[in-house]
């Protein structure tokens, strides 16, 4: 219901320069696209980066063919509970997790896998419960936060090669609900999370302990912060956050993405760089003539690149180190963009539309 008019502005020409359309995946059977991701797929001795698409009731695996085309390898049909999220496992082959739930919050995690020994595709339950957040970690592990009444459980589960839950380790939970996780890059035992009251929590995750090392406040002026990425450098912990309430015209006060440097020893922090919504989109109108603010809907971060779907139906891409928007995909004449995800390797953006069509862009 949005009449989209992109006003000529600062971003003219950037989309052609920075994003090149490589190919298109069209799932004719898909009812409504929910999520898209990438995963490593190994069969007959060859390892390829494949695309995973999810609708509410099924998950499909696509492998690259010649001439930038994609072929559907397999479709898992799921039960009555809708799919709400694909949870990919970094550095893991032939395994992908799916979050299912009736509301926006997942209730169960199922594991979809392929066994080369039996040449069969399967699925099994990893965890059930009122799960608030989940992230796939390196070394075939999953971390999740869940609530039972007033009790919060934060747990890391290791998976076997056959996809079964092997070991579980409980991390010390903070009082407030953890809504997102990020691995600290290069530190296998360090994990961070963002909470419902805008805190950053740091854990030590090893075979012996799940200690909560530090809780640091992000600041109330940046509500609903979601951590996407964390790394340690020169004694500081750098965290990339998105702010889902970000909107246009609040460029300094409410950016879409921020890089914050924390000193974990003192819990003090300072903003390093912020990335605001792209300019030149003022005066937006719905078909009924009412005005609306351009807002951030959902996004993804890979290395120093961020991408987000905006309420205008466009996808914006930022260089987080420069703090500026570097590309803009306007809404397609056939429909608005609904999903923006980075591939796990290479500078590749997956842009999804609600009808299940996924466009692969080289960035």
């Amino acid at each position: 219901d949005v009449a989209e008019q992109l006003t000529p502005g600062l971003l003219d020409g950037l989309e052609e320069e920075s994003l090149q359309l490589v190919s298109k995946l069209k799932d004719s059977s898909s009812s409504c696209a929910v999520d898209v991701s990438t995963m490593w797929w190994e069969a007959a001795g060859s390892r390829e980066l494949c695309v995973v698409t999810a609708s509410e009731s099924s998950v499909s695996l696509w492998k690259p063919l010649a001439s930038d085309r994609w072929g559907r390898v397999y479709t898992w049909q799921l039960g009555e509970v809708p799919v709400i999220q694909i949870v990919s496992l970094p550095d893991t082959c032939n395994l992908v997790c799916i979050a299912l739930g009736d509301l926006e919050i997942g209730e169960m995690r199922w594991l979809l896998l392929y066994s080369s020994e039996s040449d069969s595709f399967g699925q099994s339950l990893v965890k059930a419960g009122n799960i608030k957040a989940v992230l796939g970690l390196k070394d075939r592990r999953l971390v999740s936060s869940s609530r039972t009444g007033q009790e919060q459980q934060v747990e890391v589960v290791s998976l076997s090669e056959t996809g079964r839950s092997k070991d579980g380790q409980t991390l010390m939970p903070p009082e407030e609900t953890v809504l997102a996780f990020a691995e600290v890059e290069g530190m296998r035992e360090a994990l961070v999370g963002t909470t419902a009251v805008n805190s950053i929590v740091v854990w030590s995750v090893n075979v012996k302990t799940g200690q909560l090392l530090k809780k640091m406040h992000v600041g109330y002026s940046y509500p609903a912060s979601v951590c996407h990425r964390a790394y340690s450098d020169s004694g500081l912990l750098f965290v990339v956050l998105s702010h889902p309430h970000a909107k246009e015209s609040e460029s300094c006060g409410n950016p879409a993405f921020r890089v914050i440097a924390f000193n974990p020893k003192t819990a003090r922090s300072t903003g390093v760089m912020f990335s605001s919504l792209p300019p030149g989109h003022a005066g937006r109108q719905r078909c009924d003539g009412s005005a609306y603010d351009l807002r951030y809907l959902e996004g993804d971060v890979k290395d120093a690149s961020a991408a987000a779907v905006l309420t205008s139906g466009a996808i914006a891409v930022w260089d987080l180190l420069l703090g500026r928007c570097t590309a803009l995909l306007p809404p397609d004449p056939e429909g608005s963009w609904a999903l923006a995800r980075w591939a796990t390797t290479s500078a590749c953006l997956l842009a999804g539309q609600r009808d299940g069509t996924v466009y692969v862009y080289r960035y």
């Binding site: 530190m187 035992e189 360090a190 740091v202 030590s204 302990t209 200690q211 909560l212 090392l213 530090k214 340690s232 020169s234 004694g235 500081l236 912990l237 440097a261 000193n263 974990p264 020893k265 003192t266 003090r268 922090s269 300072t270 390093v272």
Partner: peptide, 23 residues
């Protein structure tokens, strides 16, 4: 970032916090 803004910085913050935290 200066040390005066953020307080004393340690390159071994993770190990030091792990040793200080309750088990």
């Amino acid at each position: 970032c200066s040390e005066s803004d953020l307080g004393p910085i340690s390159l071994n913050w993770f190990e030091e916090l792990s040793a200080e935290a309750p088990p």
